[in-house]
C-alpha cells in the first residue's frame, strides 16, 4: 500500500515525481479493477446466498472482507496521489525558479563578456589610431624628402588592409576594395620597393643594425 510520502521526499525531481504518480495511478486502476471483479462475483452468487447455499454464503463473507480491504487501499492511494500531485507541482515550481536563476546568471556573465570585448575593441582602436598617425607622419616626412610616392598618403591602402583583416563586415568600408586587399605592411613595402628598386628586407636589416 502506498504511503503518502510527499513531505518525506522533498528532493525528488519532477521526472521522479512523474514516475511515482504513474505508479500510483497504475495501482489505483488495478484496485478499481479488483473491486469491479469482486462486485461481479457478488452479483453472480447473490441468488445462491438467497437460496441458503452455505458455501455461497461463506464465499460472500470472504468477498465482503476483501472488498473492504480494497476500498481502504483505494482511499490511501487517492490520498497519496493527491499529495504526490501537490509535491510534483511544487518541484516543478522549484525547477522553474532554478532555471530562471541560472538564465539570469548566464545573462549577467554574457553581458560582462560583451562589455569586456568592447573595452578590448576600444583599446585596439586607440592603438590603431596611434599606429595610423605614426605611419601618416612617416609617409609625409618621406614625401618631403623627395620620395615622390604619394600613394603612401592615400587612405586606400589602409582601407584595403582593413578589408584584408576582415573589418569590412564591422566598419562602413566599401566592399569593392576587398579585391585588392593586402596587409598594410605588405602594401607599403611594395610601394617602397617600387620606388627604390631595393629589397625591403635590406631596409629592415639596415634598421635593425
Amino acid at each position: 500500500m502506498a504511503k503518502p510520502r510527499a513531505k518525506d521526499d522533498p528532493g525528488l525531481t519532477v521526472a521522479e515525481w512523474d514516475a511515482r504518480l504513474a505508479d500510483l495511478q497504475r495501482r489505483q486502476a488495478e484496485t478499481k479493477a479488483g473491486l469491479a471483479a469482486l462486485s461481479d462475483r457478488r452479483r453472480a452468487i447473490a441468488l445462491k446466498v438467497t437460496d441458503g447455499d452455505a458455501a455461497a454464503t461463506e464465499e460472500l463473507a470472504g468477498l465482503n472482507s476483501k472488498t473492504a480491504e480494497l476500498i481502504a487501499a483505494e482511499d490511501m492511494l487517492s490520498m497519496s496521489l493527491e499529495q504526490a500531485t501537490q509535491s510534483r507541482d511544487a518541484a516543478a515550481k522549484q525547477e522553474a525558479l532554478a532555471a530562471e536563476a541560472d538564465r539570469q546568471s548566464r545573462i549577467t556573465a554574457t553581458c560582462r563578456r560583451v562589455v569586456e570585448a568592447s573595452a578590448k575593441a576600444d583599446v585596439a582602436f586607440a592603438a590603431l589610431r596611434v599606429a595610423l598617425e605614426a605611419r601618416k607622419k612617416a609617409a609625409r616626412e618621406l614625401y618631403n624628402l623627395d620620395f615622390p610616392q604619394s600613394r603612401l598618403l592615400l587612405p586606400a591602402g589602409v582601407q584595403r588592409a582593413a578589408c584584408h583583416h576582415g573589418l569590412e563586415t564591422f566598419l562602413g568600408i566599401e566592399r569593392s576594395l576587398t579585391r585588392h586587399a593586402a596587409p598594410l605592411a605588405i602594401g607599403d613595402a611594395e610601394l617602397l620597393a617600387l620606388r627604390s628598386g631595393r629589397d625591403v628586407a635590406d631596409l629592415a636589416a639596415e634598421d635593425a643594425a
Binding site: 560583451v114 592603438a127 590603431l128 605611419r135 612617416a138 618621406l142 588592409a161
Partner: peptide, 29 residues
C-alpha cells in the same frame, strides 16, 4: 629616406596588428 621608410614599415606593421586585435575583439563581442 631609408630611416623614414623603415619607420613607415614599422608603423604599418603596428597598424596590421591593431587591425587583428580589433577584429578579434569585435568577433568576441
Amino acid at each position: 629616406q631609408a630611416v623614414k621608410g623603415a619607420e613607415l614599415l614599422k608603423a604599418a606593421d603596428r597598424v596590421d596588428r591593431a587591425f587583428v586585435a580589433l577584429r578579434l575583439a569585435l568577433k568576441r563581442r
